[in-house]
Design a protein around this nucleic acid. Structure first.
Lengths: 325, 325
DNA sequence: CGGGTTTCTGGGAGCGCTCCCAGAAGTTTC
DNA sequence: GAAACTTCTGGGAGCGCTCCCAGAAACCCG
């Protein structure tokens, strides 16, 4: 590896000082067009790329943000929801000269790592229960935005989908179909996304039987187990609202194996619009890429110290009718 | 944000010099047990965490590796294969005090960024065609390991699944079932993973009709389109080897919509064992998490300058029999 | 056309570590 | 008991930038 050129080499070649090169690189004002052009050419010619470590050290900015997956299992990585969010994060980051550092929260060390100036801010996703991580970061003055409403509340801004309304619409659709015994495979009871979708189902079910609830963990296996138990509890079940397409995949397998036709015997509505299934799922669509973009935009704005930012953002959902209900 | 303690504060509290603290932090030899313990306590007490930027700058090590997704669309992010790999990468990285920086290759800038000492090495995944990225990095002396055999060959070590053998087994299974008109939905023609699985199919089909090939792009939509065109070309089709479960999902939808029963009318074998489907897919299983771990282990070993490393690794696959064939 | 203002520029301190070097302390060997 | 190690320790240069400061150059107005 040939030694990389430094900023002073660029400066020498361009016939200006280090300071001027630095200004050009950082888009600072007060640089003549001539100097700017000379630097640009020198950079090109030397294929210069500034040393990130030195920039961070001198500039007190890490030029990086963390995406913290607050879940040891890494389950969320396999979730199409996460993939979409990540695409959005990347899209928003493009052009910001900011790197994305991925972390999986092993309770304990992550907090102090993050608050030590290694990143300029953090996106925390898949938050469970009353995880103290968020307040830890916030109290240390690190800009943070949560992906999904934190169950514990608190001052940390968040971006979330309108899970409640989405669930209401999904369930109302099942009701309007004339279904009588409508169950739900809910998300984890320690996540807002799980509770909000369940609340939506409850709301739309008001006046009806609301005991057909099984919580699962946003995995296909969890969905399958939940479906099995729902079927055991109510063999006459004729509809189910599944709080995530990924769980619906498992549920669909169980229904198929049990000889129940979908939608004729059991109508199914999912959430996320993230996976193709047989039969194609009627589901609540959310724009996950936008979710990721909003999250990132919000964090970058926070880092830049912008004023008058909305505390939180709720993204709309919409029901997509297909075959399963 | 209260000012973070520096290494000299730790040194003062522990009653030793900066150098000694540094040695303890980096696990260097020649430190007395007494000093080591004193430093450990001071670190604890101050909740000290070293400044990464300064470490990198002074130590000429970034303490980070990049995971480069060589695909602008970000398609691969949504692939369960990628999720598994990422879990493996993380697992292997744990305990190595090394961060994971995620990059999506926008041809051009990535190369010079990576070779500028911002990371100690790179994992390049989802390589298409004769992408010059790999040789660019390698020629600049950056440790690199490819995830999936690079089509262009070259000296870069890689980790891959035994796609050829997997495809042979999958196809042989269809043949042994007595299927007559066996098609394949192959992966992209500019990726080794696509070509190798296709070669496997061809090999197992020797002596038979091998024109029923449609390439697709590892997405459900691509799989659906390919299935449609296959069906149009050969309505009597009675089996299909789909080079990825994620594409099989789309294919299954098309078969279902066309009124073809699986496996009675058309037998389907997938690859990856990554998604639950209706009916459950007979598929070629690969251990993606191990894939990620191997990749990372290999890269870290390369960075450490270990000798006698295997040039490349081929992971075994196995056929999992379920309902679809 | 002189004083103010604004735009541009270079010099150089210092960010918080690592790592080389040289010296102190402790251990072995004949 | 002196020489020859080995183990431990502190001092301090320097990694490659950013950013503050002060001075030079250009511009503006009455």
């Amino acid at each position: 590896m040939t030694r990389r050129p430094g900023i002073d080499e660029v400066a020498r070649l361009a016939g200006v000082s280090k300071s001027t090169v630095s200004r050009v690189l950082n888009g600072a004002p007060h640089v003549s067009a001539r100097a700017r052009e000379a630097v640009r050419r020198a950079v090109m010619q030397l294929d210069y790329s500034p040393n990130q470590a030195a920039r961070s050290l001198a500039g007190h900015r890490a030029h990086a943000i963390a995406l913290v997956v607050s879940e040891p299992s890494g389950r969320v990585l396999a979730d199409p929801f996460f993939a979409g969010v990540m695409r959005g994060v990347h899209a928003e980051l493009a052009g910001h000269r900011t790197q994305l550092v991925l972390m999986m929260s092993q309770p304990g060390d992550v907090g102090s790592y993050l608050t030590s100036g290694h990143v300029d801010g953090a996106l925390v996703i898949s938050l469970h229960g009353h995880d103290p991580l968020l307040s830890l970061l916030h109290d240390n003055g690190l800009p943070v935005v949560a992906g999904g409403r934190p169950l514990a509340g608190g001052p940390v801004p968040y971006v979330d989908s309108d899970n409640f309304t989405g669930a209401v619409e999904a369930t109302q659709h099942l009701v309007s179909l004339g279904c009588e015994r409508i169950g739900t495979i809910a998300g984890p009871a320690d996540m807002a996304v799980g509770l909000d979708r369940l609340s939506g189902w409850r709301r739309a079910m008001s006046g009806r039987r609301t005991d057909l609830v099984v919580h699962a963990d946003f995995t296909p296996e969890g969905g399958a187990a939940a479906m099995t138990s729902l079927l055991a509890r109510e063999p006459e079940l004729d509809a189910v609202f599944v709080a995530a397409d990924i769980m619906a995949l498992g549920a669909l397998q169980v229904l198929h194996a049990a000889g129940r036709r979908v939608p004729d015997d059991v109508a199914v509505v999912g959430f996320d619009d993230s996976v193709p299934a047989v039969p194609p799922l009627t589901t609540v669509k959310q724009d996950v890429e936008k979710f990721g973009r909003m999250l990132t935009w919000r964090l970058l704005a926070e880092i830049e110290g912008e004023e008058g930012l909305p505390p939180s953002v709720l993204l709309p959902t919409s029901l997509v009718l297909r075959t399963s209900a």
